[in-house]
């Protein structure tokens, strides 16, 4: 059930990505990257079993968030 929930979440986030792709502007770009981050977090936590408590999930997601912010920054310059 948990795996199904993660899969459906990923499909919903993919649909959100598709919808956001038609919206121009820096805010939409930030939203697209935020959705990518949510998908990555779902895969890391749900499919790759990186538990919240161990700190390993944050070890992956924090640098990932910083990098996505950098990509956004380079995009809007």
């Amino acid at each position: 059930m948990e795996l199904t929930r993660i899969w459906l979440t990923l499909l919903a986030l993919t649909a959100a990505t598709t919808a956001l792709a038609f919206v121009p502007g820096p805010a939409a770009a930030a939203a697209l990257l935020a959705v990518a981050f949510l998908k990555a977090r779902a895969i890391l936590g749900g499919f790759l079993h990186l538990g919240r408590g161990s700190g390993w999930r944050a070890a992956f997601t924090v640098p990932l968030a910083i990098w996505l912010a950098l990509v956004w920054g380079l995009h809007v310059i």
């Binding site: 990505t17 956001l20 792709a21 121009p24 770009a29 697209l32 990257l33 959705v35 990518a36 998908k39 990555a40 895969i43 890391l44 499919f47 790759l48 990932l64 990509v71 995009h75």
Partner: peptide, 18 residues
Amino acid sequence: HMVDLVWVLILPPVYLLG
């Protein structure tokens, strides 16, 4: 899952951030 993870990160910069 790593292959999956990489793809969701490639998608916006390559295809969508115009």
